[in-house]
Design a protein around this nucleic acid. Structure first.
Lengths: 192, 192
DNA sequence: ACAGTAAGCGGAACTGGTTCCGTTTGCAAG
DNA sequence: CTTGCAAACGGAACCAGTTCCGCTTACTGT
């Protein structure tokens, strides 16, 4: 446990303003919204924005962290409701749909998954969710030996980079199917 | 067949100069080499560069097209030399190594694979190479039914976006293995 | 040779992300 | 309340890619 960061009052207020402004901007304009506009809308200089969020991708990540968390929380529920492989497929499809809905989110994800810095919480969260789906029961695993959640997450990240855009839902579905077969290995996948 | 483009003499000369300058720049500085420097080195304005190569990614693609072609030509040879699955794995690993060697090449590939424009030749070439590896014999296929070369290419593109950087060779290997299992489906993959 | 013209050219200007640094300010210790 | 100072701020400056447009030039038909 290293010392939890304590923000100065004004800093905290500005962070909130920035997140609100960014959320609004992304919702209306999409991820093309310029960093300068967001800062202006929040009544803050760009420098302030960058002190808090070292890159645009990390700002995007912060804005959508809640929704990603919700997505992750849904994993155990799915695992309890559906047969293991179906649960996994459903979750991955939800994930891709989410990435597709938020433009530019895929690039943010790449940073989060690639970066070795502080932002590993989100990555860990996602990996944990996937792990739940891979091993629904005690010691039971849907996955072939040697397949771990981190790698599946990376593969999913790759898919969202290639296929999380408007007219590519069907491609995404096929790539997820491919990945799914790669995970389980046996013939027990059952078509979509 | 629409009229083959015929470049004016000076335009052709400039294109050659640009490709040479770009190749030199990428080789020495990496893909971070600035477009302006390349143009200056070629003795040409940026406007000229952009008339020929509508984006930096497409310039990168053009510079490395030869090498990609060579990579694709190697596919039938591999298919003849090794057992089908090994050939496929080897080729994919060569591909990823290539992408990792040329910094910024992965992003260029994303454009090539995603774009619906003129630059489909390279994509078609790659898909064809993969197709050779997927179906080495007459009517015989390494792949499960429903798995096509285009999709495999996309998946490979995703992998290179996530794992074609310096210290990720092992991740790349694991992701390729995952993909490979997804392609063949049965247990006949045999570890790396 | 000459003129007309589409193709091509150059580089200033624009855009958007990121960095830098002189100034301001919240806060804690005296 | 004052003072000290690290934390935080703002926005000008910077740097890359990309666009725009007035000027130039290689080709074609006469």
């Amino acid at each position: 446990m290293r010392p939890r960061r304590v923000l100065r009052a004004d800093a905290q207020r500005n962070e909130d303003l920035l997140l609100k402004a960014a959320a609004a901007a992304f919702a209306s304009v999409g991820a093309d919204a310029s960093v300068k506009d967001i800062a202006r809308e929040a009544g803050v200089g760009v420098g302030t924005l960058y002190r808090r969020f070292p890159s645009k991708e990390l700002l995007i990540e912060a804005v959508y962290r809640h929704e990603v968390e919700r997505l992750c929380e849904a994993a155990p529920r799915l695992a309890a409701t559906q047969p293991p492989v179906d649960a996994l497929r459903t979750w991955m499809e939800n994930f891709i749909d989410f990435m597709a809905a938020k433009h530019g989110m895929a690039d943010a994800l790449r940073v989060v998954l690639t970066d070795d810095g502080e932002r590993m919480q989100t990555r860990a969260l996602l990996a944990e969710a996937i792990d739940h789906l891979l091993t629904p029961g005690e010691g039971q695993s849907v996955a072939r030996p040697g397949v771990n959640a981190q790698d599946v997450l990376m593969a999913l990240g790759g898919i969202s980079l290639m296929a999380a855009d408007e007219g590519q839902r069907d491609l995404a579905t096929r790539l997820i199917d491919l990945l799914l077969h790669g995970i389980v290995g046996t013939g027990t996948v059952a078509g979509a």
